[in-house]
Structure formats: structure tokens, C-alpha cells
């Protein structure tokens, strides 16, 4: 999948901000991920060429960050916080609930390609624990019922909203 004109332009703009091109590595990787959903060797080469460095180096940097994905995810990437506060308030049973509802284990994607289930360390929202993040949106003070509603909402959205990649859940 080639990178869009817009992505090219955005990358060039970001590069202008730094005295050393390579400083733009993380924003560049973020753009590549947004374009393709996850990072591929093609993305590393694209970034490397723009930043005048080696693709191996780019891949090495990307590998440091878990937020930079190296495998394709479902349309909705569910990240359940399992850190201390969320765990104390029932993250584990919630995770089990999600597993059962989606029929997949942590790290897996539903066969329809809709959901990928992962766990994550602290999302920085302990006051509203337990918390999960779906794509760019937070869902707080979760309960099993709430999760069922959210999943139903996402399924509805997927059925109606055509090709919208990000989950702009309005609930």
C-alpha cells in the first residue's frame, strides 16, 4: 500500500521543524502507522528514505515502542488497562468478560476483523478505573453491562459508517 500525498506532505512539514532530520523519526512513524494501521518494512523504508537513515535503524526505534504496532489490528483496537488501580477495581473479570464476548484471547483478532483485544499498562486515568481504550477513545468506570453496550455500539457503527477507521464513539 503506497503512502498518500497528504502523508508525504505532512512528513516533509514535520521534517522542516528539526535541525536534524532524524529527530522526526517518531512523528514519521506515527504518520506511517496512521496510514497503514501498523508498521511494515515498507513503512520503515519510507521513513528511512525521508530521514536519510537506514531502514534497520527506523525499525529498531519502532521496536522500542509498544504503541507503534508491527502487526495488523482489527478495526477496533481494544486496550484494557491491567495496572494496579484498574486491577483493584476488577480489570481481570472485565477482561475475562471481553474474552468471552469476543470469543478471542488477548493478542488475538476476531475472525470478522472487527476487534483486537490487548492489555496495556497504566492509561493514566486511575481516578476513573477500570479503564480501556478503543482506538483513540477512552471508556471509563467500566462494568460488564457497559462493555456490552460499547461493543454493541461499535458493531452498529461498523455496520453503518462505512470506512471510518477511527472509533469516534459518541456514547
Amino acid at each position: 500500500m503506497p503512502f498518500s500525498e497528504a502523508a508525504q506532505r505532512e512528513l516533509q512539514e514535520i521534517i522542516q521543524r528539526y535541525p536534524d532530520k532524524r529527530s522526526a523519526m517518531l512523528p514519521a512513524l506515527a504518520i506511517a502507522q496512521r496510514e497503514q494501521g501498523y508498521l511494515t518494512p515498507e513503512a520503515y523504508r519510507w521513513v528511512a528514505e525521508a530521514l536519510d537513515t537506514s531502514p534497520t535503524w527506523v525499525a529498531s526505534v519502532a521496536s522500542f515502542y509498544t504503541m507503534l504496532r508491527k502487526e495488523p489490528a482489527g478495526r477496533y483496537l481494544i486496550q484494557v488497562c491491567t495496572n494496579l488501580s484498574c486491577s483493584l477495581l476488577g480489570a481481570k473479570p472485565l477482561l475475562d468478560h471481553l474474552r468471552q464476548r469476543l470469543g478471542i484471547d488477548v493478542g488475538e483478532t476476531t475472525p470478522d476483523g472487527l476487534f483486537t483485544l490487548t492489555t496495556v499498562e497504566c492509561l493514566g486515568s486511575c481516578a476513573t478505573a477500570p479503564v480501556m481504550q478503543v482506538n483513540d477513545r477512552y471508556y471509563e468506570q467500566l462494568t460488564p453491562e457497559r462493555i456490552d453496550e460499547i461493543l454493541a455500539g461499535l458493531r452498529r457503527e461498523a455496520g453503518t459508517c462505512g470506512d471510518d477507521r477511527t472509533a469516534e464513539g459518541h456514547s
Binding site: 535503524w57 529498531s60 521496536s63
Partner: peptide, 10 residues
């Protein structure tokens, strides 16, 4: 001057 190897992950 040919970076084919690197440290990955952390």
C-alpha cells in the same frame, strides 16, 4: 557505514 544490524525492543 551500512546499518543492517541494530538493537530491537528494549
Amino acid at each position: 557505514d551500512d546499518r543492517q544490524l541494530a538493537v530491537f525492543q528494549r
